[in-house]
Design a binder for these strands. Structure first.
Lengths: 195, 195
DNA sequence: TCCGTTTTAGAGCGAACGATCTAGAATGCT
DNA sequence: AGCATTCTAGATCGTTCGCTCTAAAACGGA
């Protein structure tokens, strides 16, 4: 019943995601958002609540379409290939990202998570999710002998996560392929068992 | 000549540094700054210029007292010890940092560097400085046989820098010692040559 | 068709923002 | 002592902020 919405909510949310992703939470104004989303301020508040709530939904959208999607696509690959492909995709994205937006999860981890327990939980859980994916890959790789078994899988997973986050940080100031690829290939050389 | 300043500039700059460090550039207001620095807005603008200029000086102060100081202290240690001590200090700081301020350089890299060429240059040069320190250590370690010579020192230095930055990101949401130490010890186990 | 509901557009709210201006107080130099 | 200069405190500038209000427009159901 009643008047239906004139705009597509997902399209608008994606536009909001791109704003927050590129400029962060504080530096993005509600007026910027409304303009990029193609709606008025009133419609924005009607459909998404306040600015903080919109950010939460935009971040959730990012995590689903970016992190979760990648993990579920790569899960079927062999352990080493899955990890390698994960880093390749991230590096490829980073190099091509002219806006230097980096990773919205990392951005949220630095801008909002430290002071905000709700975002702290969201970010923390997502990082644990990535770490768990790495841990599964490492454990499988250690079983089939393609990954060094010197250290426990849980530890190497934390190392992989750190390098991933580090690459994301580097990409925002030095997005040259040689820099990012250098870190990744150094990591893989040490991680793989020398046959 | 003329009336001298009533406040100590370095003390005030340190207070400003702590504000920006903890809350970032956008989220810190000039009124916050003036209050924490113990001076009025007019004095702030007189002594340090506008907000952006004050941030630049605060960041420079951070880099000198934090990054440069650490590197020059550790430079005299043996290669492996120097790298290990570098990470130990960062982890120790991160675990004890109740405010979860993280590393101001990393914060600047994410908040300001992507849109601002001046800060991009500052951040980029400082990261190159750290990377160069790591490269010197790795090269020396490879010469004396304590560090794996499988890969070029420049590559392993990029790996070390990435892990360092990654730990700094992790620390802002999951500052538990096991998490940070896990990543570091995994790295060192793979980096060292197995005697 | 008319009512109830929800949407739209746009004006406008009070508060906070970065930055500056005005006075007057405090110093060094001559 | 008198002057030029630079400091301090506090009010205040215009702008922008997040958010809400008003009123008209657009639909579904009775």
């Amino acid at each position: 019943m009643a008047r239906p919405r004139e705009f597509d909510e997902e399209t608008a949310l994606e536009a909001a995601m791109n704003c927050f992703w590129a400029q962060g939470f504080e530096a993005t104004s509600v007026r910027d958002l409304a303009e990029q989303m193609g709606i008025t301020g009133a419609s924005l508040y009607n459909a998404f609540g306040d600015k903080r709530s919109l950010y939460r939904q935009a971040l959730a959208h990012y995590l689903i379409t970016s992190v979760r999607d990648r993990v579920s696509r790569l899960e079927r690959l062999s352990p080493v290939s899955a990890i390698r492909a994960f880093f390749d995709e991230v590096i490829e994205r980073s190099v091509k990202d002219k806006q230097r937006r980096g990773c919205m999860l990392v951005n949220a981890a630095l801008e909002l998570a430290p002071y905000d327990t709700e975002f702290q939980k969201i970010v923390s859980e997502e990082m644990v999710f990535i770490e768990t994916f790495f841990r599964r890959c490492v454990a499988a790789g250690q079983r089939d002998g393609t990954i060094s078994a010197n250290r426990p899988a849980a530890e190497l997973a934390k190392l992989l996560l750190s390098v991933l986050l580090g690459i994301r940080v580097l990409a925002r100031t030095r997005p040259q392929r040689t820099v990012l690829e250098g870190a990744a290939s150094g990591l893989f050389a040490l991680l793989k068992t020398t046959p």
